[in-house]
Computed example of a mutant assay.
Amino acid sequence: MDTAGYMQEIVKELQRSAGQIAPGEAEQFAELLQRSGKIFVAGAGRSGLMGKAFAMRLMHAGRDAYVVGETVTPGIAPGDVLVLGSGSGETKSLVAMAEKAKAIGAAVAAVTIAPDSSIGRLADLIVKLPGSPKDQSTGNYSTIQPMASLFEQTMLLFYDAVILRLMEQTGQTTTNMYGKHANLE
């Protein structure tokens, strides 16, 4: 298969994945973000990169959004929400963040393949995304892509769809969002 063929297969996989996301979970997630104070986003590895992209778009949409671990990230407080993207739901550093956020009184939202995971059990809201876990040794997966690529790509599409929903709810347009785009580049 050539590169174009692989791209077409990836798009087919994403189409199937998008169709497996529960609309109610997605809508509850958007509602939680809408009524929250500050929004904190975290993930490890490529999932973390998808989270950073989401935090940036939240900021463009006028929300107080932060990436956990950055030097300018404030403390979390009651009324805030911590969004954790983790395929396995077992990443130790993210579990610790969820525990701390819960102890402070903030909400925790998990975007994961594994709702029954440690993070899933701590979460106030879970959005289950389809995708293949990193460990594909069991043979229980249906993707041509390596490791957790399908999950990470589905996560980015999900996050972008949530942004569109928030834009719709708040009357935001791409034009207004450009006003918050970085201009020191």
Results as ranks from 00 to 15, higher is better:
51 G>E: 13
64 D>L: 11
55 A>I: 11
140 N>C: 10
119 I>Y: 08
62 G>M: 02
111 V>H: 11
92 K>V: 15
96 A>E: 14
74 P>D: 10
31 E>D: 11
161 A>V: 03
129 L>R: 05
141 Y>Q: 10
155 M>C: 07
144 I>H: 04
174 T>C: 09
86 S>T: 02
50 M>T: 06
3 T>R: 04
14 L>K: 07
131 G>P: 03
121 R>Q: 14
46 R>N: 05
152 E>W: 09
165 R>K: 15
156 L>I: 06
62 G>A: 01
39 I>T: 07
54 F>R: 10
25 E>A: 15
86 S>G: 01
91 T>E: 08
15 Q>G: 02
32 L>W: 04
86 S>Y: 03
164 L>C: 14
12 K>W: 03
111 V>R: 11
88 S>R: 02
127 V>A: 05
174 T>F: 14
100 K>E: 11
11 V>G: 01
60 H>V: 12
79 G>I: 01
6 Y>M: 12
43 G>N: 09
32 L>N: 00
117 S>L: 13
18 A>K: 12
49 L>T: 06
166 L>M: 13
55 A>C: 10
145 Q>H: 01
102 K>H: 05
182 A>C: 08
127 V>L: 06
64 D>E: 15
63 R>S: 09
46 R>P: 10
73 T>S: 14
119 I>L: 04
152 E>C: 14
90 E>M: 03
119 I>R: 03
15 Q>A: 12
48 G>F: 13
183 N>A: 15
106 A>W: 00
35 R>S: 12
101 A>D: 11
131 G>V: 01
149 S>F: 00
141 Y>P: 05
145 Q>N: 02
103 A>I: 09
30 A>E: 07
76 I>S: 08
148 A>P: 10
43 G>D: 10
118 S>C: 04
163 I>Y: 11
136 Q>L: 12
22 A>G: 00
132 S>V: 02
39 I>S: 09
122 L>P: 01
82 L>R: 03
129 L>N: 05
60 H>D: 09
8 Q>F: 08
94 L>H: 01
136 Q>P: 07
97 M>N: 13
183 N>E: 02
49 L>Q: 10
149 S>C: 14
1 M>S: 15
51 G>R: 10
67 V>T: 07
106 A>T: 08
158 F>L: 05
113 I>C: 14
49 L>S: 04
180 K>W: 00
154 T>N: 11
21 I>P: 05
100 K>V: 08
95 V>D: 04
50 M>E: 08
94 L>I: 00
15 Q>T: 15
178 Y>P: 00
97 M>P: 02
125 L>C: 14
89 G>E: 02
24 G>F: 04
123 A>C: 06
95 V>S: 02
20 Q>A: 14
30 A>P: 06
25 E>P: 02
82 L>E: 03
115 P>L: 15
107 A>E: 09
10 I>D: 06
57 R>G: 00
111 V>C: 12
64 D>S: 14
72 V>S: 15
7 M>I: 07
140 N>I: 06
105 G>A: 08
55 A>W: 12
112 T>N: 09
129 L>Q: 04
110 A>C: 09
51 G>I: 04
8 Q>K: 12
145 Q>R: 00
156 L>V: 02
172 Q>V: 00
118 S>T: 12
152 E>H: 05
13 E>Y: 01
165 R>Q: 14
143 T>C: 02
79 G>L: 00
57 R>Q: 02
107 A>V: 01
13 E>N: 07
14 L>Y: 01
